[in-house]
């Protein structure tokens, strides 16, 4: 039997958690509703009196910019850049992590320390020289200019290294006796046995790339090549600055794919964060 005071405490906790959750969800709910509202109600009302698809029509038609569907193209650009980086981060993260966790070679310890060092290094130092590098590689205003600096990631390598250390050596030995190449061992044994870490690396990389703003802002010049985040940001400051409906419709389009990923793979999100906390 539970004590009465304990039950009362639990009820209070559920009430506070629910109220808090309403605050947390409110901006999302408001955003989606606002994108369907007539402009005058965006500022003054929470629930719309009538729905309109006008803003989405504007977004998809290209609106006043005169460009053919810049938003649709920008979603495509975001997908290309984010997917490329994600595949690369997972691939190189896995092979590098495998070498650092399971193979003996000189310099391994140094690399392990160096990766930790990289993770704590202030990112702001690289903004300008990497831009200049892209300039000299003639990669400004190209896809590779957007994803090149993000093709490998110290954090991903670190996670793979930690996970691969825990996989039994017998499995690797058995595969070697069967004549497996080391690359095959990585992708046929290590990665399938580390599904959650692979998912975590993939999802977080995709999310960060999809959200990235400053770097894309610097290396893209044409509307035609901009990822959604930059196009929406610039239009919000520029020609759509007095169109809150279009802004919220764009924000909804920018949010929904990641939110969908989040609900699909929610387990990996909380696992990834828990891992961060425990590894300290």
């Amino acid at each position: 039997m539970r004590k009465k005071s304990e039950v009362k405490g639990l009820v209070i906790i559920y009430v506070i958690l629910s109220v808090g959750l309403i605050f947390m969800a409110f901006p999302y709910v408001w955003m989606v509703l606002a994108s369907f509202k007539i402009p005058s109600e965006i500022y003054s009302r929470f629930f719309p009196t009538r729905f309109t698809l006008e803003h989405y029509k504007m977004v998809f038609a290209g609106g006043t910019s005169g460009l053919q569907n810049p938003f649709i193209k920008s979603i495509f650009n975001s997908l290309v850049v984010s997917t490329t980086a994600t595949v690369s981060v997972v691939f190189f993260g896995a092979i590098t992590g495998y070498a650092l966790a399971r193979l003996q070679f000189r310099g391994r310890n140094f690399l392990n320390h160096f990766i930790l060092f990289q993770m704590l290094f202030p990112a702001i130092l690289f903004l300008i020289p990497r831009f200049l590098l892209m300039l000299s590689l003639q990669s400004i205003n190209t896809y590779q200019g957007m994803f090149l600096p993000f093709l490998m990631n110290a954090w991903a390598i670190f996670l793979f290294t930690q996970f691969f250390k825990a996989i039994p050596q017998e499995l690797i030995d058995a595969a070697r006796i069967d004549g497996c190449s080391e690359l095959r061992i990585v992708f046929r044994i290590m990665v399938p046995l580390s599904k959650s870490v692979t998912a975590i690396v993939a999802i977080f990389t995709f999310m960060t790339m999809w959200d990235e703003f400053l770097w894309y802002l610097i290396v893209t010049k044409d509307y035609d090549l901009m990822p959604l985040s930059v196009l929406l940001g610039l239009f919000t400051k520029g020609e759509y600055s007095s169109y809150p409906g279009i802004q919220t419709a764009g924000a909804t389009l920018l949010t929904l794919p990641i939110l969908a990923l989040f609900f699909l793979f929610r387990r990996y999100f909380s696992e990834g964060i828990t891992m961060t906390g425990l590894k300290g």
Partner: peptide
Amino acid sequence: GYLMSYVSAGVA
């Protein structure tokens, strides 16, 4: 539910 806000894009 509480983690949901973490995935919102900066621009959005």
